[in-house]
Design a protein around this nucleic acid. Structure first.
Lengths: 199, 199, 199, 199
DNA sequence: GATGAATGAGACTTCATTCAT
DNA sequence: GATGAATGAAGTCTCATTCAT
C-alpha cells in the first residue's frame, strides 16, 4: 500500500521500517507537523538522506507512518478481541471494550493519546492521497467492531456500528475543546445514554 | 476575546479586520498550516510587518481568524433561525436545517467547505490556547441548536442536542476519508436513521 | 553634555529623565545591546515614540544612559568620601575603599554588577562619540581617588592613581573570563600584593 | 574546542575555515555585533545557509571566530618568541616585546586593532559559554609571557606576570576613552614606570 | 508638543530536496 | 546502494525610524 521504492534487500527493508516507526512515533507525539525529515532520521538513528532515499518525499513518509500507526491499532484491537471470552456482558463492559477498540487503551494523558485518530481522519479531508489507505483501515475497524459486538452478544449490523462509531467520534472531537478535555469520559457517557435507550 | 493590541482608530480597526479576514479565508482554503505571515499580508494587500504590528504573533492571528470564522458561522446560524417560521416540520425539513446550522449551507465542494469545522475542533487538541475560545463558540452553537429544535416543534434538551451534534460530527469525520467524500450526505443519512428511531 | 533636543518644559525634562533612567537600568542589566527603543519606553512607562522625540537616535539615548550611570557612580563615590573620617588606615581598609570607589559596593552577583564599567570603557573604543563624556567621567574618578587616598593618609600623585586604576581594571577584565568569576576578589588580591611592595 | 558539526572532507573543512576566517575578520573590524550570518556568508563568498550548516547557531560561529583570532594571536606570539635570541635586554626592549605579545604588532590604527582583545575579555562577562575557551587562551598567553620574560633574562613568576598583564590591560582599557586614543603608548608608559620601580 | 501608526530592512533559523561521490 | 554536503526558499519575528495627525 505504501509507495515504497528502493531497497528490497533485508537490510533495506529493516531501515525503511525503522524510519516508518520513528515517523509514527513523532506523529503520535506531535501530530502531522512534527514529521520532518530531520526529526525522523534522528529518531531512527539513520542518516538524513535515508529519509528521501527510502521515501519519494515527505508525504510518502507521512502516509507510511499513518498506515503503520493505523495498522498497529487494528492489530491491537484484533488481539484484544481474540482474548475476549464470548458471552453476554452488561452495558458497562461493552462500553469499555468499544472504547478500547476505538480510542486505544486508557492512558493518563488520554486527551493527547487520542487526538491522532481524529487528526488522521480530518487531515485526510485535505490530503486525498491518504483516502484509499484510510478507507481500508476504516473498513477493517468496522469489521472489528462488528465482531466485537457479536462476541459480546449484542446484535449488530453495519448501521448500528456506524452509529456507534459516529457517537464516539462525535463525542470525542467535541470533547477536545474543553479546558480540561476528557474525551474518553465524554464518549463513555454518550455511549451509555445511547445504549440505555436501545442505541 | 481576541488578544490583539494596537489600532483603536477606525482605520486601524479596518486594517486589523482585513488581516483577520484574509487569515480566515486562508484557514478555510488551506487549513491551519496555510496561515502564514506572508500569505496573510499578501491576501490582505498589506505590508508583511503589519501582521506582527496588529498581532503579537502568529498564534494570535490564527486564533483571531478561527474566532472570526466561528462567529461568522454562528451569526449565519442565528440569522437563519430568525427567518424560520415556527411550527412543526417533517423530519426531512428538520434534518436540513440542522445540517445547515452545523455544516453551513450546502456547497458544491462540500467536503472542503466542511473540513475546517473539524480541523478547528481537532487542532484544539494540540493547542490549549484555543480552548477557551472554542468552548465559547461551542456553547453558543449548542444554544442555537436548542432554539432551532424548539422552533421546529421538537422537544430537545441538552442531552439530545449533544447526541445530535455527536452524530453529525462523527458521521462527517468518518466521511472525510471516502475516496469521494460526501460528509453532508453521510450526516443526513445518520440523522434520518436516528430520528426515525426516536433519536 | 548630552545631546538633548526638545522639551525645556519641566514636564518634558521629567520625561526625558525617566527615559534616561530606564535606559541606564537596562544598560546595567543587559549591556549596550539591551538598550532598545521599545525596551526603554516600556521600562519608563512612556510611549515608544517618546524615545525618538526626546533623543535624536538610539546612540544619543545610549550615551545619555551611560552618562547617567557614570555620574551616579561618581556621586556615590564622592558621598562615600564625605563620610570618610580622615586618618591613617591599614592596607585592608584602603583596599576596600578603593574597590568600592572603582567597582561599586560589593554585591552578591558581583561579576555581573561590575561588568558595565568595562563595557563602557571598551565600547568607547568603537564609539568615538562617547569619548568626551568618558574622558570627563574618568578625570572625575581620578580626582575622587586622589582625594580618597589623601584622606586615608596615603601619599598619592597622578601616576600612582593611574597605576592603581590600571591594576584594578586589568585584574577585573582578566577575572571576567574565569568559569566562576570573582573580579572583586582578583582586584583585591592584586592591590594587596602591589601595596605590599610599596605599590 | 569549537562545537561545529559536519564537514570532515578536506573541502568541507576548507569551507568551514573560510567562514571562521570571515567571521574573525568581521570581529576585528566591527566587534561582536558585526558577526551576522549574512555578513559572514558574504565575506566568505558562500551561501547564507552554509553558515548554519557548518555552525549550529550564531553563538557557535562567534565562538569559533573568537577562538580563531585568539589562537592566531598566540601563535604569532610563540613564533616571535622562537625568533628571540636569548640574553639580557634593557627595559625598552623588554617592554616592546611584551607589548607585542599582548597587543599584537604595532599598527597605525592601533586603537582599533587592539580593542578586540578587550571586547573579548569583557564580552565573556555576559556570555558564560565563552569562558572555558577564554580561560584556556588566557592560560596559554600567561605561559607565553613567562617564557618570554625568562628568555629576556628577567626573573618572573606567575604573580609577576599577572601584575604585568593587569598593568597593560588596565592601561589600555583606560586609554581607549581618550579623544585620540593611544593604548599602546599608555601601556608602554605604564610598563616603564612599573619596571623602573622594580615592577 | 507628542504620539499612534506604520513599515522596510534585516535578524536568526528550519526545511525539503538535490546531487556528487 | 547510500549518504554527506549543500542550498534556495521560506518561516517567524524585531527593530530603528519616519510621518501624519
Amino acid at each position: 500500500m505504501s509507495a515504497g521504492s528502493p531497497a528490497s534487500t533485508p537490510k533495506g527493508e529493516r531501515r525503511r521500517q525503522a524510519l516508518v516507526e520513528a515517523a509514527a512515533r513523532l506523529l503520535v507525539e506531535g501530530g502531522f507537523d512534527a514529521v520532518r525529515h530531520r526529526a525522523v532520521a534522528e529518531r531512527a538513528g539513520l542518516p538524513l538522506a535515508s529519509t528521501t532515499y527510502y521515501f519519494r518525499d515527505l508525504d510518502d513518509l507521512v502516509a507510511a507512518a499513518a498506515e503503520h500507526h493505523g495498522r498497529g491499532e487494528l492489530a491491537r484491537g484484533w488481539a484484544q478481541l481474540a482474548e475476549l471470552t464470548a458471552g453476554r456482558r452488561d452495558v458497562d463492559g461493552v462500553v469499555e471494550i468499544v472504547l478500547d477498540q476505538l480510542l486505544g487503551p486508557a492512558t493518563e494523558r488520554d486527551a493527547e493519546a487520542v487526538v491522532l485518530r481524529y487528526e488522521r481522519l480530518v487531515a485526510t479531508g485535505r490530503r486525498p492521497h491518504l483516502r484509499p489507505l484510510m478507507s481500508e483501515l476504516s473498513a477493517d475497524l468496522h469489521e472489528l467492531l462488528l465482531e466485537t459486538l457479536a462476541r459480546c452478544g449484542i446484535p449488530a449490523d453495519h448501521e448500528r456500528v456506524n452509529r456507534l462509531v459516529a457517537l464516539v467520534d462525535g463525542s470525542v472531537v467535541n470533547a477536545l475543546i474543553e479546558v480540561h478535555p476528557d474525551p474518553r469520559g465524554a464518549a463513555r457517557r454518550m455511549l451509555h445514554s445511547a445504549l440505555a435507550e436501545g442505541l
